[in-house]
């Protein structure tokens, strides 16, 4: 550490420590009186401070919620069959092959002409795995 910088750091540490101790020596009434001087209105200072705390609580709550959503989404994605990770053309080929059996042709047509989204296709593939019509990799069981 550069000695000048180290010296400045020590000076600022001493300053912080001394002020910190001064704050401790003030009674509650003196703190409120200080707020009236510094903010013009102690009530306003108190309200602002409550808002600062509430702001952090709200932000942390939102972050926790988003993290929970991400974890849920990851769980859902992780629970899906391997077949949904295949390229789109291969997914369509799997559906066509299955539909060529007892499945109706409408689904195949919808998938082929693009009126079904890839999400729809993935859901269908998941269902086919659950029904035992294909295995995890999209092959006939």
């Amino acid at each position: 550490m550069n000695s000048d910088k180290g010296s400045a750091c020590r000076q600022l540490n001493r300053l912080a420590q001394a002020l910190d101790q001064q704050i401790d020596t003030l009674s509650d009434d003196e703190i409120i009186a200080e707020a009236a001087v510094l903010h013009g209105d102690a009530e306003k200072a108190a309200r602002e401070t409550r808002d600062l705390i509430q702001g952090v609580i709200s932000k942390c709550g939102r972050r926790r919620l988003e993290a929970a959503r991400r974890a849920y989404d990851a769980q859902i994605t992780g629970a899906r069959s391997n077949v949904v990770r295949l390229p789109l053309e291969r997914k369509l080929a799997v559906i066509e092959r299955v539909a060529a059996g007892d499945f109706g042709k409408q689904l195949t047509l919808a998938a082929r002409n693009g009126s079904a989204t890839e999400t729809d296709i993935d859901s269908l593939l998941d269902d086919l795995v659950k029904l035992g019509l294909i295995d995890e990799e999209g092959n006939e069981p």
Partner: peptide, 25 residues
């Protein structure tokens, strides 16, 4: 969070002033 809600105005303002005291640098 519940404990934060029970702080008095003086507690909160004191914390805020302590933060200002510690902030330089």
């Amino acid at each position: 969070i519940a404990a934060l809600g029970t702080l008095t105005d003086a507690d909160r303002i004191r914390l805020r002033y302590r933060a200002a005291s510690l902030a330089p640098g």
